[in-house]
Amino acid sequence: MVKIRNKTGTFAKWIKRVVLAFLVLFLIFQIHYILRITWFGFFEPSSTPYMRQEEIRMNEASLRKIQYQWVDFSQISPYLIRAVVAAEDAKFMEHSGVQWEAVREAFIANILKDRRAPGGSTLTQQTVKNLFLSHERSYLRKAEEIFLAQMMELLWSKKRILETYLNIAEFGDGIFGVEAASRYYFHKNASRLNKSESVWLASILINPKEYQNRKRTPHLNRRINRINHDMELVEVPSRK
Rank of each mutant, 00 (worst) to 15 (best):
V128C: 13
V128Y: 03
K129I: 03
K129P: 02
N130T: 13
N130R: 09
N130K: 06
L131Y: 09
L133G: 00
L133W: 04
H135Y: 06
H135K: 10
E136Q: 10
R137N: 07
R137Q: 06
R137V: 01
R137K: 15
S138K: 06
Y139L: 05
Y139T: 05
L140R: 11
R141H: 00
R141S: 00
R141P: 00
K142R: 02
K142P: 00
K142A: 00
A143E: 03
A143Q: 05
A143I: 15
E145Q: 15
E145T: 07
E145Y: 02
L148C: 13
Q150C: 04
M151H: 10
M151Y: 07
M151V: 13
M151E: 10
M152N: 01
M152E: 05
M152K: 02
E153H: 15
E153I: 09
E153K: 07
L154D: 09
L154G: 09
L154E: 10
L154M: 13
L155R: 13
L155H: 10
W156N: 11
W156A: 07
S157E: 09
K158N: 01
K159W: 02
R160M: 02
R160E: 02
R160W: 13
L162Y: 04
T164Q: 08
T164K: 08
T164H: 06
T164I: 14
Y165N: 11
L166S: 13
L166R: 04
L166T: 13
N167T: 14
N167Y: 07
I168F: 03
I168C: 04
I168W: 13
E170R: 15
E170H: 10
F171R: 05
F171G: 05
F171A: 08
G172Y: 06
G172R: 05
D173C: 11
D173T: 12
D173Y: 14
G174D: 07
G174A: 15
G174Q: 12
I175T: 12
F176E: 00
F176P: 04
G177H: 03
G177M: 01
V178W: 03
V178I: 14
A180C: 11
A180K: 09
A181F: 14
S182V: 07
R183K: 10
Y185H: 14
Y185E: 09
Y185M: 10
Y185G: 06
F186M: 08
F186I: 07
F186G: 00
F186W: 13
F186S: 04
H187R: 14
H187M: 15
H187Q: 14
H187G: 05
H187C: 07
H187L: 11
N189P: 08
N189D: 15
A190G: 11
A190L: 12
A190H: 11
S191H: 12
